[in-house]
Amino acid sequence: MRVVAKFGGTSLGSGDRINRAADSVANAVREGHEIAVVASAMGNTTDELLEDITFEADEADRAEIVSMGERTSVRMLKAALAARGIDALFLEPGHPQWPVITDERGEVDVEETTRRAKALAAELDHVVPVITGFLAETHDGTVTTLGRGGSDTTAVMLGRYMDADEVVIVTDVEGVMTGDPHVVEGARNVGQISVDELRNLSFRGAEVVAPSALSYKDDELDVRVVHYQHGDLLSGGTQITGEFKHLVDLREEPLACLTVAGRAIRNQAGVFHRLSQSLAESGINVDAVASGMDSVTFYVDVDEAERAENILHREVIDDEMLSSVTVEDDIAVVRVTGGELPNQPGIIAEIVAPMAEAGINIHDLITSATSVAIFVAWGDREQTLEILQQLY
């Protein structure tokens, strides 16, 4: 089996942990597996180096400085593997076999990186390459970086381009947990999670796998997260399944928009719960929800609009803080899903501008971690779909 193993900073944070990492790689090699290693900077080295740059420095100098953490890690890990009789080679920007190449804008040159990654993969039966994570270089040899979480990106990218069977992310957590074990009792490991689920968690604060890394995962590549303490690359942890694709999807049936108005609804504990529960208890599915300071809007199937209006009206009557409920029928929703859409600067303007030029009024726009939902009049649905398909 061909495996790309990425060791995070905590898993290389001391001599003992480096020994544990080297043991796990050596054991896998002795079992006949082809292993490539991606190493982060030891501990918090990168953050500490960044904090020490208290002077004016251009991007090239900053990249060279912060690269020292990863450059140290690969030397330490290579030496530890050599001490175990494993033929290893450390790779950093500037090495003739260095694989990760970017263009002048800092974007990964997929064609050249793929060519170099495949050349490196062809030698895995002879040597274990220990590769600096986070770093890249341009065609002219300038050191660049892949941004926050870049070591994860390096690992999954190389896993894909080296035709690996699996990428193993070695970190300081037991894979993906049901909750933060430092905060909630009884948190347990999730044996399997989809790319979609994990990306949503990652964008909302879960520090498991960098979202930028998951964009390189496809259906053919397995990705697994394991704890460094177990010292086993080939079992345990959480398996990440699936492939995240850009998708522009038009809901086939129209929606109705029901808006409940009230005084400072957002500051009233339990109001949203009571309204949602009343719809759920009557078997009415809510497609989406939007809220403001003085209103909550529910989107439901247009066939359920009258029943939903009566249910919500009863809640309005029973709560003096609520004033009224209104209904608007024949709303269409087009969803754009994929990538890091809501986290890309200018993404909303990119969507809104062509729709404004086409004279389409946006009824509502709701973002999540990995999608944007655009609500328009039913009669504008086909033109909206066409515009978004051209964009994505």
Results as ranks from 00 to 15, higher is better:
residue 203 F to A: 05
residue 103 D to C: 12
residue 13 G to M: 13
residue 9 G to S: 14
residue 336 V to I: 05
residue 199 R to D: 08
residue 182 H to Y: 12
residue 183 V to M: 04
residue 201 L to Y: 07
residue 298 F to Q: 00
residue 142 T to G: 03
residue 299 Y to W: 03
residue 373 A to Q: 01
residue 327 V to W: 11
residue 381 R to P: 02
residue 290 A to S: 14
residue 28 A to Y: 02
residue 327 V to A: 05
residue 279 L to K: 05
residue 367 T to H: 12
residue 292 G to C: 03
residue 367 T to A: 10
residue 375 F to W: 04
residue 226 V to K: 07
residue 170 V to M: 00
residue 232 D to N: 15
residue 270 G to V: 05
residue 381 R to Q: 07
residue 352 V to Q: 01
residue 254 P to V: 09
residue 148 R to M: 05
residue 128 V to I: 14
residue 327 V to Q: 05
residue 316 V to A: 08
residue 371 S to F: 08
residue 383 Q to T: 13
residue 124 L to M: 12
residue 225 V to K: 13
residue 212 S to T: 08
residue 26 A to H: 06
residue 128 V to A: 10
residue 172 D to M: 01
residue 188 R to T: 13
residue 246 H to R: 13
residue 379 G to F: 00
residue 221 L to N: 02
residue 356 A to D: 14
residue 26 A to T: 12
residue 319 D to L: 14
residue 30 R to N: 04
residue 85 G to W: 08
residue 225 V to C: 11
residue 308 A to W: 03
residue 114 T to L: 00
residue 174 E to G: 08
residue 174 E to Y: 05
residue 108 V to Q: 02
residue 34 E to A: 13
residue 335 R to H: 06
residue 296 V to A: 01
residue 328 E to W: 06
residue 209 V to N: 11
residue 271 V to I: 15
residue 374 I to C: 03
residue 198 L to P: 08
residue 352 V to I: 10
residue 301 D to A: 08
residue 374 I to D: 02
residue 93 P to K: 13
residue 234 L to Y: 07
residue 288 A to F: 01
residue 66 V to W: 13
residue 47 D to R: 03
residue 194 S to I: 02
residue 161 Y to T: 07
residue 185 E to A: 15
residue 325 V to A: 07
residue 113 T to Y: 14
residue 239 Q to P: 01
residue 362 I to P: 01
residue 124 L to Q: 14
residue 192 Q to I: 09
residue 79 A to V: 01
residue 309 E to P: 04
residue 148 R to T: 00
residue 303 D to V: 03
residue 276 S to P: 04
